[in-house]
Every structure is written in C-alpha cells, then in structure tokens.
Design a protein around this nucleic acid. Structure first.
Length: 321
DNA sequence: AGTGGCTCCTGGCGGC
DNA sequence: TGCCGCCAGGAGCCAC
C-alpha cells in the first residue's frame, strides 16, 4: 500500500531519471484512470518537458514545462489550447506502480508516458484504484483545497501544538484519526499501526482522550515511523516496487502490522488484530493498553518511548533521528 | 460538523 | 481438482 514513504521513494527514484525528458505522447489504455478525457490529459502533458517532481501526502506531482512543438509533431488539442506549464498528479492508491523503462512483455499499463529519447514510464495498477490528473499550475491549490488535505508530517505546520489541537474533542478512534488525510497527509494503514505501537497507544482510544504527554509520544512516533519507512525505501507488502523495480525493506522490521498471532518484539505478548473504520488494525494489547497509563514504561519520563533494553526491536531508533 | 459505512476493483486464498 | 465467495484497503460519497 503506497503511503507517504512509498510515494517519497518513487519520487526520489524518478528524480534520477525523469527531469529534462520530453513527454512526447500520452497513451491512455484505461480511461477510468482519470475523470478527465484522454484528449484533455494529452493537451496538458504531451509536448512538455519534465521539470520537477514533488509529493503532497500520497500524491505524486510531476511538474511540466511549457509546450515545446518539435516541428509539426504537435497537433490536435495541444496545438490550439493552453501552452503554458502544467502539473500532472498521480495517486497510486492500492496497487499502482510506476515503471520506468519497462521490460519487453511488461504487463499492460493503464497509461504510458512515451518520453524522449526513447524511454517510457508505465503505470501498472492491478486493482485499478489509481488516478491521474493534469491541470494548469494555477489550479493546483484548488485541487488540494477541495480535498481538505492536512499538513505534511515533515512540514512546518505539523507541530505538536497542531496535533494536540487536531486531536482535541474528537470521539473517533485514534486509528481512524490517523488515516484521515484531512488531519495529517500521507499516513496509511501500515504506518498508522506502526506509529501507534511506537507511541504505545491503543488504536481504539478516542482521539480526544489523548493527553499532552501521549500527544508528544504520538507526534514523535509518527515522524520516526515515517522517516524509518523512507530510510528503508518503503514497505513492499502487497505489490509496491519503485520505478526501477526495487523492493523496499520496511516490511522486514514491522512491529505489529500483519504480525497477528506473533510475539510482540518488546514484551512477547501475542499481537492482536481488530477492525477500526473498516481497516485491519494490529496492536500489542500489553504495550498498547486501552486504559491510560498502563503500558510498560508509560511512567517513564516525558517523551521516553524507547522500550526496555531487553527486547529492543531491530528498527527502534532514538527519538530525534 | 463529525462519524461510520459503503463502494470501487481484482488477485489470492480458504473452504467445501 | 475446481469452483465459489470472501478479504485486502485509499479515498470519495452518502446517511445519520
């Protein structure tokens, strides 16, 4: 499941090969990949050069320069319409993969970018949830405003004060709170479970019940977990591979996600699974008790989220890394 | 307004 | 062995 670390991994990998290339042609094999028509998408991306790659939450943004018309190649909608810079936005959702320079015989792509000189970017997506948009740069703000995106976890707005304010008064379970992109952008099922484990907070605790010290733990745990995901180049659990076909390694150091029935790396208690907001949710019932102040080590000093030395998970890193 | 539930979609897996 | 039905989940939509 591509979440913030996976999309960031894709962005970094594409950053090594896409900028400077001319997007010669857009091939839309599956029109349901976009609410826009193939003609409209083409008019906004074809004949433009990739100038940059950005990420907003789980969205990947590809900056494109103004239309370049090599000879008479540029015909159709792109010829008479808007010719300024543009932005293409891709959301991988569940199974989306961007593959640069696909191998011969690569499975069908929902869309293909044919690039100069002679390279291709494939968008493969088994479950077909992924989406593509393209618009003028001026429309970008509206695009994200209409989605009420919360702050970037690594941005200046995601402060402890912001988190405390966002948690306050909410009755929704913590897990549902973390998955809500309007509160924090980029957190998905894997990293929500892992961050709650690190913060020693039960996923069913109501968001509004979180105290100041617990909010501090959650804030640190979110940043540490997402950073660890980026450092490990994502989690390759279902189908995630980066554009070069490489798998991430975060799945190898998961503490609770999809470890139902296995032993907690800290206390040895069996990891349990429940459903919160329709999503599979994994937690250690001892390290993440439903009652406040019951977790092992919860009386430790503020911000001390390191587990007992005797059972240190492989990926447990010092706060503030 | 906030919250929960449904929907989309298809490969994989368990059960019979 | 083969078939059927369920499950996974990000985000948009809808109902309460």
């Amino acid at each position: 499941m591509p979440e913030l670390p996976e999309v960031e991994t894709v962005r970094r990998r594409l950053l090594t090969c896409l900028p400077g290339l001319l997007l010669r042609e857009l091939v839309v094999n599956d029109p349901s990949v976009s609410e826009q028509s193939a003609e409209e998408l083409t008019s906004l991306v074809a004949g433009r050069r990739v100038t940059g790659l950005r990420r907003r939450g789980k969205y990947l943004l590809v900056d494109l320069g103004p239309t370049e018309a090599p000879g008479a190649e540029l015909t159709g909608p792109a010829a008479g319409g808007y010719a300024g810079p543009a932005v293409a936005v891709i959301h991988l959702r569940m199974t989306g993969q961007l593959v640069f320079r696909p191998e011969p015989g690569e499975r069908p792509a929902r869309f293909i970018w044919r690039l100069e000189p002679g390279t291709e970017l494939y968008f493969q997506d088994v479950r077909r949830f992924g989406r593509l948009w393209a618009f003028e740069p001026a429309a970008e703000e509206d695009f994200f405003a209409s989605r009420c995106m919360g702050p970037e976890p690594f941005g200046p707005e995601f402060t402890l004060e912001y988190l405390r304010g966002a948690l306050a008064g909410r009755r929704a379970p913590l897990k549902a709170f973390l998955l809500d992109q309007r509160r924090i952008a980029g957190v998905g099922n894997i990293y929500a479970d892992e961050a709650l484990y690190r913060a020693r907070l039960h996923p069913l605790r109501s968001a509004g019940s979180i105290g100041p010290r617990e909010a501090l733990r959650l804030h640190a745990a979110l940043l540490e977990t997402l950073q660890a995901g980026i450092d490990h180049e994502g989690s390759s659990i279902e189908s995630f591979i980066d554009p070069a076909g490489e798998r991430g390694s975060f799945q190898e150091i998961l503490n609770v996600y999809q470890r139902t029935g296995e032993s907690c790396r800290v206390c040895g208690t069996t990891v349990e699974r429940t459903v919160v907001g329709g999503r599979g949710t994994h937690y250690c019932p001892r390290c993440q008790p439903r009652r406040r102040g019951m977790a092992p080590g919860s009386r430790r000093r503020l911000g001390a989220i390191t587990p007992p030395r005797s059972a240190k998970p492989a990926d447990w890193e010092a706060p503030g890394r």
